[in-house]
Amino acid sequence: MIARALGAGAAIILLGAAGVWVITAPEPLPAAMIEGPPGDAQRGAAIFAAAGCAACHIAPEAEIDDAPVLSGGRAFASPFGTFHAPNISPSPQGVGDWSDAEIMDAVMRGVAPSGAHYYPALPYTAYALVEPQDMRDLIAHLRTLPPSEAESLPHELPFPFSIRRMVGIWKRLNMSEDWTLEGEISPQATRGRYIAEALAHCGECHTPRGPLGGLDRSRWLAGAENPSGDGRIPNITPAGLDWSEEDIAYYLESGFTPDFDTAGGEMALVVEEMGRLTAEDRAAVAAYLKSVPPVE
């Protein structure tokens, strides 16, 4: 009797474990998304800038120039532990030996070549919405950047966050299938939405997060705690930001606010990247920000 109960219990646990194993399984991109014409490195430079890769993956204190060294090493504090941006330069220590498909799976699905999950410190919920051709162009540009031999640092995460497999459940709750801003918007704001929501992943810092670290999309861009503990990241919905579209575009170009103060903190790095976009694309982001629902 006891043996049978124990047997049934074990079976339930095994079934449960199998279930967890299935729902936490990493899901790479479908082949149809990966295949396509080869990337155009020149076109990829602007996409690389818009995607803001360098702001996180340069060495601590390094400057972003035309050919940044993506050696990694910057530390990012979070309620779950400290993440270290890895080396993503085209070297053996970085992603030099990876195929385009492997890089696309990493960036757009958070799946490593080994099949393991990446933590969502890498904003793949946003990059999932990037056009595959844009991503191939970005990768072609990435491969032209200087290599770095720096070894990537491990993250510092306490149990249970150290179990990567659990990220599978997080992804089921948080992977975005579609745009956060829905409904009728102008063609210019639509272009801005693509840059802001998919490439530039503005929401990763400007949108508050729930207890599990997922973005609270009902408060999209309404400002959030700064995970580093320094001040607050501002509300950039029309309820929080009353700048004109011209002011927003000029800020993204030059770093100057309407009263000619300058961008500080992490945003200064973002502005360096946004300054590399075309004036049309910066204006598109401004139009998008004006189309987002105001959230107090």
Partner: peptide, 21 residues
């Protein structure tokens, strides 16, 4: 020239100024 002035302002603010509350 505005761009280089902005970079110079920003370089110092980025390194040594606390972000706004």
């Amino acid at each position: 020239a505005m761009k280089s002035v902005g970079d110079a302002c920003g370089d110092c603010h980025k390194a040594y100024r606390k972000p706004e509350e």
